[in-house]
Amino acid sequence: MKNSRIIKKNYEFEKIINKKNFLKNQSFVLYSIKNEDDKFRYGVSVSKKNWKAWERNKIKRQVRSIIWEYIKISENHSVDVIVMVRKEYENKTFIENTESFKKLADRLRK
């Protein structure tokens, strides 16, 4: 079963990032753009210079979990989001990072 909410293609990442519509806090940078699909689509980016492969994979799993929880509780809105994880992410707990993401994502709607 293919998940149609995940952005994987490099050209899609570039299109969203090049619009330069972003919000940031200590743990995340969210780049966003409106879409026509009436879905919340997302991509996750974790830097190679900050973490080893197993750490990046763990962080990506955690961020996807945070995003899925956000999608469940939020209204449907048509936006594509690229989530870039910052170095400060590892200094906070999972719950703090979850709250941080939710506050940032709620600002996207405004």
Rank of each mutant, 00 (worst) to 15 (best):
M1D: 10
M1I: 14
K2T: 11
K2L: 13
K2I: 14
K2F: 12
K2E: 09
S4Y: 13
S4H: 13
S4C: 13
R5L: 15
R5F: 08
R5Y: 09
I6G: 02
I6E: 07
I7A: 06
K8M: 05
K9S: 07
N10Q: 10
Y11D: 12
Y11F: 13
E12Q: 15
K15E: 11
K15A: 09
I16A: 02
I16S: 01
I17S: 02
I17R: 04
I17C: 03
N18V: 01
K19Y: 05
N21Y: 06
F22I: 04
L23T: 04
L23C: 05
L23S: 02
N25K: 10
N25F: 08
N25T: 06
Q26H: 07
F28K: 02
F28T: 04
V29W: 00
V29Y: 00
V29P: 00
V29M: 07
L30Q: 03
L30T: 01
L30E: 01
L30I: 08
S32P: 00
S32K: 10
E36P: 00
E36A: 07
D38M: 11
K39D: 09
K39G: 01
F40C: 09
F40M: 10
F40K: 08
R41V: 09
Y42T: 01
V44Q: 01
S45L: 09
S45M: 10
S47A: 10
S47W: 02
K49N: 02
N50H: 12
W51Y: 15
K52A: 10
K52Q: 12
W54E: 12
W54F: 13
W54S: 15
R56H: 05
N57G: 07
N57I: 12
N57L: 08
K58D: 03
I59K: 06
K60A: 06
K60G: 02
K60I: 05
R61N: 08
Q62C: 04
Q62K: 12
Q62W: 05
S65R: 10
S65L: 13
I67M: 10
I67Y: 08
I67S: 06
I67E: 03
W68S: 13
E69F: 07
Y70K: 11
I71W: 05
K72H: 09
K72W: 03
I73D: 13
S74T: 14
S74M: 09
E75Q: 13
E75R: 14
E75D: 14
N76Q: 11
S78V: 06
S78F: 07
V79W: 01
D80E: 07
D80L: 05
V81G: 01
V81P: 03
V81R: 00
V81L: 04
V81K: 01
I82P: 01
V83A: 07
V83F: 05
M84D: 00
M84W: 00
V85D: 00
V85Q: 01
V85T: 06
R86G: 00
R86T: 00
K87L: 04
E88Y: 10
E90S: 15
E90L: 08
N91Q: 11
T93M: 02
T93V: 02
F94H: 12
F94N: 09
E96L: 08
E96D: 12
E96Q: 14
N97D: 03
T98V: 09
E99H: 12
S100G: 06
F101A: 06
F101Y: 13
K102P: 03
K103I: 12
L104A: 06
D106A: 09
R107K: 15
R107M: 13
L108Q: 04
L108H: 07
L108V: 11
R109L: 15
K110Y: 13
K110M: 12
